[in-house]
Design a protein around this nucleic acid. Structure first.
Lengths: 166, 166
DNA sequence: ACTATTGCCGAACGCTGTTCGGATATCAAT
DNA sequence: ATTGATATCCGAACAGCGTTCGGCAATAGT
């Protein structure tokens, strides 16, 4: 039996209303989206609050899923992944789409989205070199129900970040 | 006059050789890429080292630029950005390409890459709604030298992360 | 053989994250 | 109006972690 406390939590999670983020929340989120190593005392000077108050807000933002996590941003090139490519894959069946989603556990695959159009899937893949990209492409093209694959090979990257508030 | 110490640093930064990352470094990087809030003592148990040893390695990885930073991952939908779209923009001049790069300071724009092809630019944009996306598209199409814009509107996202080691 | 460098550890310090109690304001229900 | 519940904030205090330090062992270079 759900208590009233869990009810409010469920409601909060269900509606995920952007309106319950005030200007202070957005300032905190913007700061943490750029650099999550900032201390609470630093943040407190930015938003004119005490450190525990900022802590409470960050805790709430994490609980509500606005902050999904804190991660280290790695340099793909220095890891040996020099070849960034976006693939737009046109599939003829839902089974083929599902097969593509199984590539999520490959470390070279960074993003998988279904996009509008006739069963299209967009994949962002950072391969080590042309050879491993070729192998990856052949693996996809050999899938049942894959009609075509368009490749957009990145030459240089000028911006790469996550969602920002305002 | 550069000392021998700065020389070795310069060499290290110039070649950015993936070979100087051993298995321990990769374990640390993999852990921090998923969750950068892990404490050094947690990491030390993973890689069978002491906490200060892990600290030294992380410090080195940051100095060498392998770890570019630590950021909070935000939920775009809960920020009000419900419409993720990838644009492939075909431009006829280098000036048009440069004009597109100036969109980097827009908060809705998350990625900008030049891609292989006749002056193509790929832009990842997370707009609030269809109306603001339409405004954004019209702004781009009205640029001098923009030949065509292909839009891939994301329906659902199954994976979204940064580069991983191995 | 000698020195410099690197990588690691244990111990200790100082800062920061975190918690706690209490104060204030808002709102709902009575 | 009064009461009670909730939310937000603060100052203070504690505990835990990041960070530094000295020293040791192994390695590479001269």
């Amino acid at each position: 039996m759900p208590t009233s406390k869990t009810e409010t939590d469920a409601v909060r999670l269900a509606r995920h209303n952007p309106a319950d983020l005030d200007a202070t929340d957005r300032k905190i989120l913007g700061a943490l989206a750029k650099d999550a190593t900032r201390s609470y005392s630093e943040l407190s000077t930015i938003v004119n609050l005490s450190a525990p108050a900022v802590h409470d807000r960050v805790k709430r933002l994490k609980r509500d899923g606005v902050i999904k996590g804190t991660v280290a941003r790695l340099d793909g090139c220095k890891l040996g992944r020099t070849l960034l490519t976006f693939l737009v894959i046109d599939t003829s069946s839902y089974n083929a789409t599902r097969a593509l989603l199984r590539f999520a556990d490959r470390p070279e695959v960074e993003e998988i989205h279904t996009v509008a159009g006739d069963g299209c899937v967009l994949v962002k893949v950072r391969a080590n070199d042309t050879e491993s990209l070729e192998n990856f492409l052949m693996e996809i093209q050999s899938l049942e129900g894959v009609r075509s694959v368009r490749s957009y090979i990145a030459l240089s990257t000028f911006l790469e970040r996550g969602p920002l508030p305002e």
